[in-house]
Design a protein around this nucleic acid. Structure first.
Lengths: 188, 188
DNA sequence: TACCGATGTCAACGCTTGTTGGCCTACGAT
DNA sequence: ATCGTAGGCCAACAAGCGTTGACATCGGTA
């Protein structure tokens, strides 16, 4: 129990999942077709159905995402923003899953729900551990989300020239005080 | 010249455009079908084609958007952020066109380009007039965009509970210093 | 070697989509 | 009153979609 018995089809399953992530990230949910994903993976569309059941379930499998947020409570106050912004940037750029989720969330209800789950299950708890008023942690986490999601949208989805071209260090330097304030400043 | 001769079909054209905006805003570009738009407008799908030629051109007509940004240079420095955030919120909520554009921009190239045009043609010039270093106005405008687009995504697209439920005044109070800093603070 | 389940291919289904052309109707000018 | 034209509807097309079932093929086991 616990460890799955390896199957001979595991490489194929992995190829499908990788192709699905790329297509969902590039095209969104509806424009990414099973046929195109299968072609990228070099197999027949029917295999996708056999191994994942439906397009919905394929997306659910491909959009499993872990932000791997660090524990901020070990850090000195004042460095939260810097660490958070830098972490988001590197995490996003090392794994296309988040972009797939973000693009799909604009028009797909399941993707939107998954995004809310990531917020409630991963972002909010980390914020709650370091903010001065845990009763209002969700509000502060939401504010952090507005800034970080906006960065993702402008940099990766819209590819707004000044933001897409900005070096990561400069992004961190600009956004750091914003995140810091949302986490720690007295509520207005 | 200048004034178009009124046509007997103008009410129908307007009904199509209104229905198109609603559908594009609710469903995005690909899931909003010509048939559904025509049904909402109470006419035949063929009429949409006759008056707008294609789905692409219908979207182009429906996604014409003017932010109607005020001239900030008449204001005392220090009130830019407050006025800007409040203006965005009321403008977005009074006209579904922006939401249609935002949803569609996630997966539709024409919508994305239109979004970049709104940025370059409407946001950047206003920012350039009030920021201390016009040579870097685009960078500052881009930063403002990250915060405002993130607000729009979290509040209207994802409907993130803490942000969707937050009163407009509270949003303004929280985001005001962020916008102010992106507009005026020395570059890092 | 003979077998059986897992792996993979192929062709087709039913459905929805954007788009087109033909036909009917009603209005406004002559 | 008549005629041309613009407004509107209906039926159909070709294409693409997710999905399905029947058939081939390979690999480990008895």
């Amino acid at each position: 129990m616990g460890t799955e018995t390896p199957r001979r089809s595991d490489p194929t399953r992995a190829a499908i999942l990788a192709a699905a992530r790329d297509r969902f990230a590039a095209d969104g949910y509806e424009r990414a077709t099973i046929r195109a994903i299968a072609a990228d993976a070099g197999i027949d569309p029917a295999m996708v159905m056999r191994y994942y059941g439906s397009k919905d379930r394929l997306f659910a499998a491909a959009a499993e995402f872990d932000l791997r947020l660090p524990d901020l409570s070990e850090l000195p106050a004042g460095r939260y923003g810097e660490v958070l912004v830098h972490h988001f940037l590197t995490r996003w750029e090392s794994d296309g899953t988040f972009l797939a989720l973000l693009r799909a969330a604009a028009t797909n209800e399941a993707a939107r729900q998954r995004m809310l789950d990531v917020f409630a299950g991963q972002v909010a708890p980390v914020v709650a551990k370091v903010c001065p008023d845990p009763a209002h942690a969700a509000e502060r986490a939401g504010l952090v989300a507005t800034q970080m999601m906006g960065l993702a949208v402008c940099r990766y989805v819209l590819r707004l020239p000044p933001i897409a071209a900005m070096p990561a260090d400069t992004v961190v330097a600009w956004l750091r005080p914003t995140i810091e304030r949302y986490l720690s400043a007295p509520r207005p």
